[in-house]
Design a protein around this nucleic acid. Structure first.
Length: 433
DNA sequence: TCAACTCCCACCTTTGAATGGG
DNA sequence: ACCCATTCAAAGGTGGGAGTTG
């Protein structure tokens, strides 16, 4: 943590979700995200505001998707129902924001968008997209890692944030027509499907069907009060109707609420930084230390790719140089992870926004968790994940300050105290070649 | 049989290179 | 040379519907 000005001055990081009203309007209905073989963007897409970073210290931003629970769902008529246990987890991937690494000032100057993040259902995906199972529920997790480059990541402090209203069900085709409509009404790319009043855009006859069920005409004009808030310890997730069919236990859980977040997490949080070797820090054990055994040792794939050969990273082809042009220095290509000290037993399984196409030639063979693990992870976790939460009736438009999301970091919704729980959702997982 | 999935399409936005004026 | 606005074509993001799969 060389340049890190004040490595311990990390407690003030704040993160808030942009387009919260939009997210909420989806959430209330039961957000669905299409996943396709080639990869599909999210909508709404993840966009966050960050504050409290050290302006001149460098940070890396990551996003990964965490299973909401251990079930598979099905859409029956007009609501979601449980449909058995979840499938074993597919290769676990983490999306690296293309601007990474960049100084705190860069991340804070404007909302940070993860527009290009893509979801796929292709377990063999070679583009570095995040792999999910259809008919399963997930929620994004945002990680801020203080690090000068990708190599030093493992020595760095980091914080994790989640937003309950961003949870969604992955689907290959929309199930709830209300969701379809909301998407069409709000996603510019779907404009062609809008009814637009008098316009005779007779496309598909199904359009007329849900005219009846029309939601608010313009989801934009929603009451805006600042931020819906989730103060530490009182993070709640409103229950939404589509899940009515699901056992109460599952549908009306209250994320974070009776969770450990309150107590322990908070403590841990007060010192959220991770010092190398501190594997004793359960909740924040740094993943790099744990999964070495999972993958093959050789991370020395040869590669071309202008200096930024990044063998351990699943890449996403992208226009280079487009990232972060507005801030001095942020965007060097991601450093060579390969040349890293070999104590990396494995490979990072991260999606990089701006890698050279050349890098695509050597794709890692993802080594998902062993079958045992996969099985184990869902096993009895279910009930633990969503403890019978007392029905939380809580009004929607709070006026609290947006905040302390930090407190729910990582544990949000999960049981901790159980190391294996955390280990099932590594920040960075390894893969072999 | 049937729900889940895939492919292709019309329609749209976004991107970025080319152009021209000051 | 430089900057900015405009134009234009190519690239690529939508959901729908028909077809396919298991």
């Amino acid at each position: 943590m060389a340049g890190a000005p004040d490595p311990y001055h990390q407690g003030n990081i704040r993160m808030t979700l942009e387009d919260q009203e939009l997210w909420k309007s989806f959430h209330e209905i039961g957000t669905e995200m299409i996943i396709t073989k080639p990869g599909r963007r999210m909508f709404p897409h993840c966009k966050i505001n960050i504050s409290g970073l050290v302006p001149y210290a460098k940070y890396i931003l990551l996003v990964d998707m965490v299973p909401e629970d251990g079930f598979r769902y099905k859409w029956n008529k007009d609501k979601w129902e449980l449909a058995g246990k979840a499938e074993p987890q597919p290769p676990y991937r983490t999306y690296l924001h293309p601007d990474s690494p960049a100084p705190g000032s860069h991340w804070m100057k404007q909302p940070v968008s993860f527009l290009k993040l893509k979801l796929t259902n292709n377990a063999l995906d070679q583009h570095g997209h995040i792999i999910l199972h259809s008919m399963h529920r997930y929620h994004p997790r945002f990680h801020i890692v203080q690090a000068d480059d990708l190599y030093s990541v493992r020595w760095s402090v980091f914080q994790t944030f989640t937003f309950p209203e961003t949870s969604f069900t992955a689907v290959t085709a929309y199930q709830n027509t209300k969701i379809t409509k909301l998407k069409i009404d709000n996603n510019p790319f779907a404009k062609g499907f809008r009814d637009e009043g008098t316009n005779s855009k007779s496309r598909g006859r199904s359009d007329t069907e849900h005219l009846a069920k029309k939601l608010n005409p313009t989801a934009c004009a929603l009451h805006h009060t600042g931020h819906l808030v989730f103060k530490s310890g009182e993070v709640k997730e409103e229950r939404f109707s589509p899940w009515g069919g699901v056992s109460d236990r599952e549908s009306s859980h209250v994320l974070g609420q009776d969770s450990p977040v309150g107590s322990e997490a908070r403590d841990v949080y007060s010192s959220e930084q991770l010092v190398p070797g501190h594997s004793s820090y359960q909740p924040y054990r740094y993943p790099f230390h744990e999964y070495g055994k999972l993958q093959s040792p050789s991370s020395s794939s040869a590669g071309s790719g202008t200096g930024s050969r990044v063998p351990d990273i699943a890449t996403v082809p992208e226009h280079e140089g487009k990232a972060a042009a507005h801030e001095p220095g942020p965007t060097h290509c991601p450093p060579n992870l390969a040349s890293t000290p070999q104590d990396y037993p494995g490979v990072l399984n991260m999606a990089v926004g701006q890698a050279k196409p050349a890098v695509l030639s050597h794709h890692p063979l993802y080594a998902p968790y062993g079958p045992e693990q996969a099985l184990g992870q869902w096993g009895g976790a279910s009930s633990a994940q969503y403890p019978p939460a007392p029905p939380t009736h809580h009004h929607h438009h709070h006026h609290h300050l947006a905040t302390d999301y930090s407190t729910q970091a990582v544990h949000h919704g999960y049981h901790h105290g159980n190391v294996s729980d955390w280990s099932q959702y590594p920040l960075f997982s390894y893969s072999c070649w």
